[in-house]
């Protein structure tokens, strides 16, 4: 059986239309055979990325302007509703940054915070995603767990601090627990939401192709929910940092949140800003990691 027979259309000049319907063939997209010069390539690249370059340039300028305003406000110790009298200048913060990166204690604060995030967030993902998937699939599980989750969900993770200290034997465990709680509910709720949006026609299509319950779960429900799972992970990561910092400020002995609070107690004002910036950078980095993982796991969604 050769393929032409199947697409053979007698009369009516069908093959031509059939080809046209097939859309752009890959051959048509390939570049001309003579390689263009370096300059033309550069120019073409510039043209294609003009909007991106523009945004990047404006972004850099905007950041520099922010630093300049900060510098001016602190240099002249402006007092206008808010008081910049004791606020450290960018240069002072830079100095303490240089000092800090040579200080193993500062690095340990950062590492410890990262470890708490890693453990707390991972646990939340490991528990939250499967639980959401199962709750979305099995009505009884949903009916049993959902009311409890709805009652606990509005309680901010910070409000759990005293309870966590009572529950867990060590401070370390209670901080990880707080971090876990912070990220758990966004992950659970978004996974559940993703499950509720799975197109039933896709499930029926899978059934018609011989898929059983387990395969449908793995091949349809799970991948269909992935975009929402990753939304949950991104939100969960943000809340994890919020909860962690709060927990560290209240009950920690180490960690970047503790570092920031301690700097205030020790009247090292530059370290306050340093701690804040470090938290911001860590938060940004971890959400970038999740976004990258999302693109890796969902190649069909990239552009």
């Amino acid at each position: 059986m050769s393929s032409p027979a199947l697409v053979r259309q007698p009369e009516d000049s069908m093959p031509a239309t059939a080809l046209a319907e097939a859309g752009p063939s890959p051959a048509a997209i390939t570049r001309p055979s003579t390689p263009p010069s370096f300059a033309t390539l550069g120019l073409r690249w510039y043209r294609l990325n003009r909007a991106g370059l523009r945004a990047a340039a404006i972004g850099v300028i905007s950041l520099l302007a922010f630093l300049l305003v900060w510098h001016l406000l602190t240099t002249y110790r402006v007092v206008f509703f808010v008081r910049f009298t004791n606020v450290p200048s960018p240069l002072a913060v830079y100095d303490s940054f240089v000092k800090a990166i040579h200080d193993p204690k500062f690095l340990m604060h950062i590492l410890l915070s990262c470890r708490r995030i890693f453990i707390g967030f991972s646990l939340a993902a490991i528990v939250g995603v499967p639980l959401g998937l199962i709750m979305g699939r099995f009505k009884l599980v949903h009916e049993v767990i959902f009311p409890v989750a709805e009652v606990l969900r509005p309680i901010p993770a910070i409000a759990w601090v005293p309870m966590a200290i009572m529950l867990w034997p060590t401070n370390e465990q209670s901080i990880v627990f707080i971090t876990f709680l912070g990220s758990f509910f966004p992950i659970l709720v978004n996974t559940l939401h993703g499950m509720s949006l799975v197109d039933p026609v896709l499930v029926r299509a899978a059934q018609c192709l011989g898929a059983r319950e387990r395969s449908i779960f793995r091949e349809v429900y799970f991948p269909a929910s992935l975009p929402h799972i990753f939304t949950g992970l991104t939100v969960g990561m943000g809340v994890a940092w919020v909860s962690l910092i709060a927990a560290e400020m209240i009950s920690g002995q180490y960690g970047i949140g503790y570092f920031t609070w301690e700097a205030y107690s020790l009247v090292q004002y530059a370290d306050i800003a340093l701690g804040m910036i470090a938290i911001g950078v860590l938060g940004l980095g971890s959400s970038l990691l999740i976004r990258g993982a999302g693109q890796l796991v969902m190649p069909w969604r990239s552009t």
């Binding site: 029926r204 299509a205 899978a206 018609c208 192709l209 011989g210 091949e219 349809v220 992935l226």
Partner: peptide, 28 residues
Amino acid sequence: GPSAERGMVFQQYSLFPWKTVRENVEFG
């Protein structure tokens, strides 16, 4: 109940968006 003995084609195509064309065809 549904089975692979009765193949079905839907108006909304209902291809699995997370599978390539070939993986879709391979599914059954």
